[in-house]
Design a protein around this nucleic acid. Sequence first.
DNA 1: ATCTATTTGTACGTATGTATT
DNA 2: AAATACATACGTACAAATAGA
Lengths: 246, 246
Amino acid sequence: MSSYKKRTIIVADTIKQMVVTENLKPGDRLPAETDLIQRFKMSKGTIREATRLLEAQGLIKTRTGPGGGCFVHEVSELRTIALLSNYFYFKNLNISDIYQIRKLLEPEVAGSLAGNLKKDQLKILNLIISEYQEEPLNEEQDRLHHESALKFHGCLADFANNSLLGFVIKFMAQMLTEVTVNRKLFRPTNYELWRRGLDFHRELLTALEIGDSNKAKKIMYEHMCVAEKLMLKQEAMVSTKLKEFG
Amino acid sequence: MSSYKKRTIIVADTIKQMVVTENLKPGDRLPAETDLIQRFKMSKGTIREATRLLEAQGLIKTRTGPGGGCFVHEVSELRTIALLSNYFYFKNLNISDIYQIRKLLEPEVAGSLAGNLKKDQLKILNLIISEYQEEPLNEEQDRLHHESALKFHGCLADFANNSLLGFVIKFMAQMLTEVTVNRKLFRPTNYELWRRGLDFHRELLTALEIGDSNKAKKIMYEHMCVAEKLMLKQEAMVSTKLKEFG
DNA sequence: ATCTATTTGTACGTATGTATT
DNA sequence: AAATACATACGTACAAATAGA
């Protein structure tokens, strides 16, 4: 019940504050380990605990050797999504939860991108589509197709000007992957999901190219509705199977 | 270039895997420190580094004393939002980015809650509104009002059945707070933002109570639009001031 | 290209503190 | 009050990485 703070926390907080008050940017140098030892009058171990804590959060990076030390670091998207996944691990998300959000956000992005994509961006999207244009012949291929299709959505999100919106969309895709993998929703192969998804993506790309914002929005919305329906069907089928044979 | 892994990481990963493969739930016990020391044949310090790593991620909790030890722990929402904030620290979000998402998600939640709130839930919402029903007399009060108003939105999000949607909305509110605080958007006091926000919240509560889903949705959407406009105005004013006097 | 100095990283052992039964 | 089990912190020794001579 005291306001006592552990020494490692004091050091970590001080370094964090330093970044804010001195307006440090990624790549900027922080005091060396030996400096901190002297400044705080603490042992090497204690100081290292502090930097390790910040490193675990992805806020700093340390390098060994001459000219090495602690540097401000931008937290990576991958690590952030991983940490978010931990939070939702026990939350038992279901398909509909995810699609409720996707149905709202994905059409918005599609609409905002219509007519605003550069040639090389369209090229990239086409390239991604080509990764899943062939009919999947087995479960493994189906899974890979599914992953690539989600990459298509992630790519659209990256092209959006709103990094916050882009992040949320990519996170939704990640959660969807985790849910499908956890519940083994890839057996049997979902031919219809692949086939209709591919069609939607192609249509969407055309609408984006000609700059028809409303059409792009509409296609994406329908795409989300159909995908949700098919995944729910798959889910129902899998759970029936589990009841029968599990 | 080797697949060498630090001993602490090996221990941490092994424990993580244990949670997944044994399908452990929050509160379940993990091996005690002394057990792990024997099992891995490592020093106490090394083992502690591993558990500390997992604790930093919020995945486990350790308790001292007899019967103490490591326990599986559900990552807290607060901590998760804090980690997410780190990610966006260098991303330079702006008001419009945040409101683009709020305008899509908040009305959806409002609509879904109409007619579905229990009496005690309505009571809680009323109580929160009472926290900012008096006119703010100074900057500090204005800031507190603003915080309480965001709590109102967070509470609605909690009442939604979709925990994912609720989380995203609460995160948006948090980002909004950080942006306003960082850019010192609280001076001068934004009387209009408070006044109109209060009115919208009251109207919304009525719509939720009588179960008019469409009206609730519409009110919330308008609320978002007005709030965005007022905050952008405030932002423009602040930046003008900075140019003149900064 | 090798050696050297520098700077962080890992691990151990130990002493003492704190929380819980 | 005592026993238990984790928490914090220190100091030390050696390992690994790296820049520069």
